[in-house]
Design a protein around this nucleic acid. Structure first.
Lengths: 202, 202
DNA sequence: TAACTTCCTAAGCGCTTGCTTAGCTCCCGT
DNA sequence: ACGGGAGCTAAGCAAGCGCTTAGGAAGTTA
């Protein structure tokens, strides 16, 4: 059920027990959803007693927020890096979609929480991640805009095209399972081609 | 919050109170999720006491299943009708995507339960809707296959293309809100064009 | 009128939930 | 040697959960 946790995940979260709790929460939230997961589930999966969670987090909601926030920040950073990268709008959009899709597959547990547990966040917590989400979408729109102005993309409506591009990637988190072939990196490349075709790229 | 319930929804569900309970459950499940919704929420929103729910349904899970099952059946019927309709593969695929997207926008509350509350179903209930989901996906694959064989679609991988087409439509349920413009019918047409472009339709 | 059926409610039961409290153990600095 | 903080647990509390029980109001049939 649980895959080995990469050591580079949440390097800033200390102590180690807090990271283990977050990793256990990711598995549980992704599999059953935030509301169906109990604090006992999380603590037990991390090898601790139920009370241990409250040594490191003030509440169950704070665990969700920590996961959702860092996931949103990672997603935005990826998209911004692809936008700022070298190459034509076509090349940069291809790289953006390939990496975004690959992330939604590889980290589909985190991605599921990021994309599908927004309604479980408090109003204050939601405001923080909503701002990150708006920035992410704005970057995609800006890149399509650039391609349209350069004459390499042909789309009827930039706003809808951006939504469609993001939908393709985000929805991967919903259906992806680790046994799916091709593997995430190759899947990302195929989706990048589909996305560029959809944008009418030459 | 609640939009007027179309009279043609669940015409087979009797008595009227059972339909009102299902409608209230749709609003609550779609807004907050199955596990965050209490039986008291549903009954109160339907204008009844908490115990009234158990006059018409054996459990809260049965309400979810009734909603999910009828939603899946409706979705499959739509897709099958578009497949069996008149016209070229291009025309039929355009009609399929347009209608499927329009449904995911108009009925986004039901669609959200259909697409995002699968993990809340019992194993037995899930088996029923999973069968309907496989049939739906198979129809889309068959139509792409037909277009590829007829030489009007150009895709590298039929399985992945089918996933992408379905992703575009399904994800609409996640982000759509009633104030979004263009309205569902027009949104469906724009998405149909994007989908056909993605399939390399001439 | 009387018996029956349908649809609903008031009250509450047993259990689980998120979270708290009090106290223990181990390690580190001096 | 010993004080003190960090990290953890056993026990349990108040609140809310899904669901049950007993019974009542209203309409229908004989």
């Amino acid at each position: 059920m649980t895959e080995p946790l990469p050591g580079d995940l949440w390097p800033d979260i200390r102590p180690d027990a807090a990271r283990r709790l977050m990793a256990a929460a990711v598995d549980a939230f992704a599999a059953r959803g935030y509301h169906a997961t109990t604090t006992r589930d999380i603590a037990t999966a991390a090898g601790m007693s139920p009370a241990a969670l409250y040594v490191h987090f003030p509440s169950k909601a704070a665990v969700l927020f920590a996961i959702s926030r860092s996931g949103h920040e990672r997603a935005l950073a990826m998209v911004e890096a692809a936008f700022a990268g070298p190459g034509s709008p076509t090349e940069r959009m291809g790289a953006l979609v390939a990496e975004f899709v690959s992330w939604h597959a590889t980290k589909h547990r985190i991605a599921r929480i990021v994309q599908y547990e927004l309604s479980a966040l408090s109003a204050a917590d939601y405001a923080v991640v909503a701002s990150l989400r708006r920035k992410t979408e704005a970057v995609v729109r800006a890149l399509i805009d650039e391609g349209v102005r350069a004459g390499v993309f042909r789309v009827a409506d930039v706003r809808i095209a951006a939504r469609a591009i993001l939908s393709l990637a985000i929805d991967v988190a919903r259906w992806y399972t680790p046994d799916f072939r091709p593997a995430p990196a190759e899947l990302g490349k195929r989706y990048a081609e589909l996305a560029l075709t959809m944008l009418g790229a030459s």
